[in-house]
Amino acid sequence: MDEKEVGILACSGEECLGGTISRLATRRVIELLRPNRAVTLCLPLYIAGGEEERAFARDYPVIAVEGCGKHCSTRATEKFSGKVHDTVEVAEILGEGVALAKTVSTRDFTAEHQDMVKIVAREICARLDAIV
């Protein structure tokens, strides 16, 4: 059976915890939870890459994973590539206080942080499963 792949694009924001969670949750989906169904792209490759990178939203239905209300993943995709299929917002799932908290190095990640990543990863999977 031909399996449909979905593009997951994390904002990976450096200034708040939501960005770190978006990045790690996306990696968890790609590596562990849906390894054959999901692909990703470094967001700034929309600028630094070529036509192949800018075709991302045309080649795959894209789920944007946003660490904060700036919605950089959605905005970048729609500016350089195409429409976003769905959006997962860390602030909606974990609360704005968590998403906008000071960013944390993975060196200082706690079990609580890991749980946050798992919760957001599960939500990404739910959205992905609805597409495929």
Partner: peptide, 21 residues
């Protein structure tokens, strides 16, 4: 930015730079 030189450095979200925020 967080440990060695927080008084004189900070970071910025690359995603925001990409969108031209």
């Amino acid at each position: 930015t967080n440990r060695l030189a927080p008084e004189i450095t900070e970071t910025a979200c690359l995603g925001q730079l990409v969108t031209g925020d």
